[in-house]
Design a protein around this nucleic acid. Structure first.
Lengths: 220, 220
DNA sequence: CGGCACCTTGAGTATCCTCAAGAGAGGTGG
DNA sequence: CCACCTCTCTTGAGGATACTCAAGGTGCCG
């Protein structure tokens, strides 16, 4: 982890309350960490001895091909847990989309076989990641540009929890690298959606969903 | 599960020895099951109360979009475990590629919290699936047709374990639906590979890799 | 030997990408 | 407070890749 730059602040206990103890919530007993926009939290190939939970802000998890092409594997929003790995090393790089607050826990603490509850929560998070990855693969393999975008918007609307008014934490390039398109195609398709009256763009990070029903049907 | 057709035979104990107890092997104490080609093992949405392991043969796991487009999520070969889910239901359909022998275990037996060893093996299998799904997403999102195919061939060569001589258990259509292309593009690209001397096709299921080095470089 | 399923090949086209330029928004400094 | 600068997003024109539709081969099985 390259967290030793000036922008990272670590604070000791106590951990700020993130959310009331949900079933699959990981109550990370660890330190709080602030990360500024675009800063790396961990890199592909680095030892995976910590697990993270987003408290505030958002992050992107991605992999690079040899020639620089980037595939964003997932975005993590407040409440989401990331950094769980099978092997010793991280298989993706994770960076902050915006200024972000995280809670960190040592992996060994969580993997502790004595704590059945913690294990189950870890299990749920990992399986959730698997589900999302499989859904993602279906989108990337078989859907058209507008289907991908509709899918993305519907998913983000559900996860951001702000009803039909979205404040996207990521750039057009991030969206493009997530759904496997170019930034130009993303932009054009969003414009089309606006022309069709499906959405309303108010500043490029702000999306109002006007016809959620129609948009959902577009997901195929 | 639609396993009550005439082609399915169930046999009671004992379970045939599948492989010596590897670290992440699941020694499924359960019944052995034979499934014939193209037969469904379980369907999307059905209750996921069993976990399966391939003994002989191969299966495809896939999801269908509303209009019939099919995305194959993964192929499972001898030694592979499938059917592990977070929720109560299966999220994919699984069918036999060829005549296949499976071992089945009740999920509850495996999820038993007393058995730390079994839990760890289950964990490893699930995380392996996550890794494969993430790799798959990168392929589907960012790679060209020839990169996808090269990747597929290299992966299958490693998993089938027959060195440079592959006997593919799946059809061109299956390959296409796995790497997100049409059957025609798969066929054309394979022909190209043969023209370039990278592979040699001897009957359409039989592939000889002639230049593994070059093929690996093509994966990007 | 014939039939059928699967695979290959071809021609034309659609979708998305590339390259290029212009517009908008947000932030900084005068 | 306004002007400017930069970064990001949008829009356009042209082109490449992969898709669609169609026909012809190949191999496998009865």
């Amino acid at each position: 982890m390259q967290m030793s730059t000036n922008q990272v602040q670590r604070r000791p206990y106590p951990v700020p309350p993130t959310s009331p103890t949900e079933p699959d919530d990981i109550r990370l007993i660890g330190i709080t960490m602030s990360v500024s926009r675009d800063q790396e939290i961990f890199g592909e190939g680095e030892p995976a001895d910590q697990v993270f939970k987003v408290v505030k802000g958002a992050v992107r998890s991605f992999r690079l091909l040899s020639d620089g092409r980037r595939q964003i594997c997932d975005f993590y929003l407040p409440g989401d847990v990331f950094g769980i790995e099978l092997g010793a090393d991280h298989r993706t790089t994770v960076e902050a989309l915006t200024d972000t607050v995280l809670v960190v826990a040592r992996r060994s603490t969580l993997g502790d076989e004595d704590d059945a509850g913690a294990n189950r929560r870890l299990w749920r998070q990992a399986m959730k990641a698997l589900q999302r990855s499989q859904d993602h693969a279906v989108t990337l393999g078989r859907r058209s540009a507008s289907e991908r975008l509709a899918n993305f918007l519907v998913d983000m609307a559900a996860r951001l929890g702000g009803g039909e008014a979205l404040e996207l934490p990521m750039s057009r390039q991030d969206i493009a690298d997530y759904i496997g398109l170019t930034i130009e195609t993303v932009s054009r398709t969003l414009t089309q959606f606006q022309i069709l009256g499906l959405i309303r763009l108010a500043g490029c990070r702000s999306v109002q969903i006007q016809k959620p029903r129609t948009l959902a049907e577009l997901c195929a």
